[in-house]
Simulated assay, not measured.
Amino acid sequence: MSENEEAIDDKAHIRDKLDFTNAEWITSTEDEDEPGVEIAFVDGYIGMRNGADPDGPVLVFTPEEWDAFVEGAKDGEFDEP
């Protein structure tokens, strides 16, 4: 994104309407001492939160964004140098 471009929040219209209160959260680990991240599927969107802070913010992905995120993780895009 260039300096003159602004990020567009394409989920602004739905963000406050998604209710993750009763969502079934899937954890990334079985280790209770290291909760990891959790994901949930609600109304066609994917939510991701910090398992150590379940009352904290939820990142919201469209299915396309989620697919790109998963592929990036598989390709090592988020690995520490």
Rank of each mutant, 00 (worst) to 15 (best):
1 M>L: 12
3 E>R: 13
4 N>M: 09
4 N>R: 10
5 E>R: 13
5 E>A: 14
5 E>V: 11
6 E>Q: 15
6 E>F: 13
6 E>W: 07
7 A>R: 11
7 A>M: 11
8 I>C: 10
9 D>K: 03
9 D>A: 05
10 D>K: 15
11 K>C: 09
11 K>P: 02
11 K>V: 15
13 H>D: 15
13 H>W: 14
13 H>F: 12
13 H>K: 09
14 I>P: 05
15 R>P: 12
15 R>Q: 12
16 D>C: 05
16 D>Y: 08
17 K>M: 10
17 K>P: 01
18 L>K: 04
19 D>T: 02
19 D>G: 06
20 F>G: 06
21 T>M: 02
22 N>R: 06
22 N>T: 05
23 A>S: 07
23 A>Y: 04
24 E>L: 13
25 W>Y: 04
25 W>C: 04
25 W>N: 02
25 W>E: 03
26 I>M: 12
26 I>L: 13
27 T>Q: 13
27 T>Y: 13
28 S>F: 00
28 S>G: 15
28 S>I: 00
28 S>H: 01
29 T>C: 07
30 E>P: 04
30 E>T: 15
32 E>A: 03
32 E>I: 02
32 E>P: 11
33 D>N: 06
33 D>P: 00
34 E>F: 11
35 P>I: 01
36 G>H: 00
36 G>R: 00
36 G>C: 02
37 V>K: 05
37 V>E: 08
38 E>R: 01
39 I>H: 06
40 A>P: 07
41 F>D: 12
42 V>R: 03
42 V>C: 03
42 V>K: 05
44 G>H: 03
45 Y>W: 12
45 Y>D: 09
45 Y>K: 13
45 Y>N: 12
45 Y>V: 08
46 I>R: 09
47 G>C: 03
47 G>M: 04
47 G>R: 01
48 M>G: 01
48 M>F: 00
48 M>K: 10
48 M>C: 11
48 M>E: 04
48 M>N: 01
49 R>G: 06
49 R>K: 12
49 R>A: 08
50 N>Y: 08
50 N>H: 11
52 A>Y: 07
52 A>T: 00
52 A>P: 00
53 D>I: 03
53 D>L: 08
54 P>H: 04
54 P>E: 05
54 P>C: 06
55 D>N: 15
56 G>Y: 03
56 G>F: 05
57 P>Q: 11
59 L>H: 11
59 L>G: 00
60 V>W: 02
60 V>H: 10
61 F>T: 10
63 P>W: 06
63 P>L: 09
64 E>C: 03
64 E>L: 12
64 E>D: 15
64 E>F: 06
65 E>F: 08
66 W>H: 06
66 W>T: 06
66 W>D: 01
68 A>G: 10
69 F>E: 07
69 F>Q: 07
69 F>M: 10
70 V>S: 07
70 V>M: 08
71 E>W: 00
71 E>V: 13
72 G>D: 11
72 G>A: 09
72 G>Y: 02
72 G>T: 10
73 A>C: 09
73 A>K: 05
74 K>C: 02
75 D>Y: 00
77 E>M: 13
77 E>P: 00
79 D>P: 01
79 D>Q: 10
79 D>M: 05
79 D>H: 10
79 D>C: 06
81 P>L: 08
81 P>S: 08
